[in-house]
């Protein structure tokens, strides 16, 4: 299993005849994604590689039953492309385009939600479920199938982390880039929720950066709802305030959106934050171990508590009151019990 995309994904590429669209449509196909159609108005009935091109998303769906769309169209037309996909009934839409106006996205965001669809991006590298499906531009060769879920606001930094995970012997269930803009369709919490439910995912890596408060919100969510180990990395500790650091969303406004605040919020709920991406696999192993031990200790404590409530123990306690000698023995006895149980 994986999240959002898998073997059942039948992909449609909007903007397939453009430079990026045509290149990546073929890259995705090469990786094994089931790319069933492309759309470029005016280019219907042509082909890109072996992929049939249609004039509209509705036409493409009628012919191919596509259930997922990836968008490579230029920024002025990106919002319209998303609307077209939603209206044609696509439920998973991935928008790679960088530079979509935020005001367009505010309207699109609510429209997509109201229609029960999922939008990933814009300004994102898309996602990949290794060996199952790839939608977007993440290089497949650095990924390895496994049980780590990765969610990130960045592009190339995501590759760096995947590279570090793969090198550290940790394969991935799904790696997803949610985008660097201010208004994005899917946020950390959506992905954390999906990873928590996904049986193939055993640990989660979260890559955040300066700007906004999504990392802080994610930290609060993890504390309440996520039982799997999570580790994080936050980019932009050295970023100056008031400057847009490449991504439209990566800006410290006033005193909000600072890396230090995000790191503190994550640490506060027990999530280790790496100084370098290379430390993430080690931190994840440590965090998983720590959580396991805590869980075991908790269980042992519960059992010990239960045991202390049994009538036998009650008698022992009464006895203890009468003779100090047996009291010590009683304590020892209890300790031994505890040890035995925690070993189990």
């Amino acid at each position: 299993m994986a999240i959002f995309i898998d073997k059942k994904t039948k992909l449609l590429v909007q903007g397939i005849t453009g430079r990026d669209g045509s290149f990546h449509a073929q890259q995705m196909k090469k990786y094994g994604t089931n790319v069933v159609a492309g759309v470029t108005p005016g280019k219907g009935s042509t082909k890109v590689g072996n992929i049939p091109v249609f004039n509209s998303v509705a036409d493409a769906i009628k012919e191919t039953k596509a259930n997922c769309s990836v968008i490579y169209v230029p920024p002025p037309f990106a919002a319209d492309a998303i609307y077209e996909a939603v209206d044609a009934g696509i439920k998973t839409i991935v928008c790679i385009t960088e530079g979509v106006p935020a005001n367009d996205m505010m309207k699109v965001y609510h429209y997509v939600k109201e229609h029960g669809a999922r939008l990933i991006g814009p300004n994102c590298p898309g996602l990949i479920s290794p060996e199952l499906s790839k939608v977007g531009i993440i290089p497949g060769n650095i990924c390895k199938k496994g049980n780590i879920g990765l969610v990130s606001r960045s592009g190339t930094l995501t590759y760096e982390v995947i590279f570090a995970l793969t090198k550290g012997g940790m394969g991935q269930s799904t790696c997803i880039g949610i985008g660097g803009d201010q208004v994005i369709g899917t946020n950390f919490i959506d992905c954390l929720e999906a990873f928590e439910k996904d049986k193939a995912t055993k640990g989660i890596v979260m890559i955040g950066e300066i700007g906004g408060s999504d990392e802080e919100d994610a930290a609060a969510y993890i504390k309440k709802h996520v039982t799997k180990p999570v580790v994080a990395f936050i980019a932009g500790r050295t970023a100056p305030p008031g400057k847009r650091m490449g991504h439209a969303g990566a800006i410290i406004s006033g005193s909000s959106g600072l890396a230090a605040e995000k790191v503190a919020a994550l640490n506060k709920v027990g999530i280790p934050v790496a100084i370098s991406p290379i430390d993430l696999p080690r931190l994840l192993t440590e965090r998983a171990k720590e959580m396991k031990e805590k869980e075991a200790a908790k269980k042992a404590k519960k059992k010990a508590k239960k045991a202390s409530k049994t009538p036998k123990d009650g008698i022992a306690k009464k006895k203890a009151k009468n003779s100090p000698k047996s009291g010590i023995a009683n304590k020892k006895e209890k300790k031994e019990k505890k040890n035995k149980k925690s070993k189990k």
Binding site: S154, T156, L157, F233, A235, K243, M245, A250, I275
Partner: peptide, 23 residues
């Protein structure tokens, strides 16, 4: 290349004792 990686690179420059001259 890439904004996130550029920030991460700057952060590590600082961490290892240098000072980034730019993003």
């Amino acid at each position: 290349n890439g904004a996130g990686l550029a920030m991460a690179t700057m952060d590590l420059v600082k961490h290892y004792g240098g000072d980034p001259a730019n993003f």
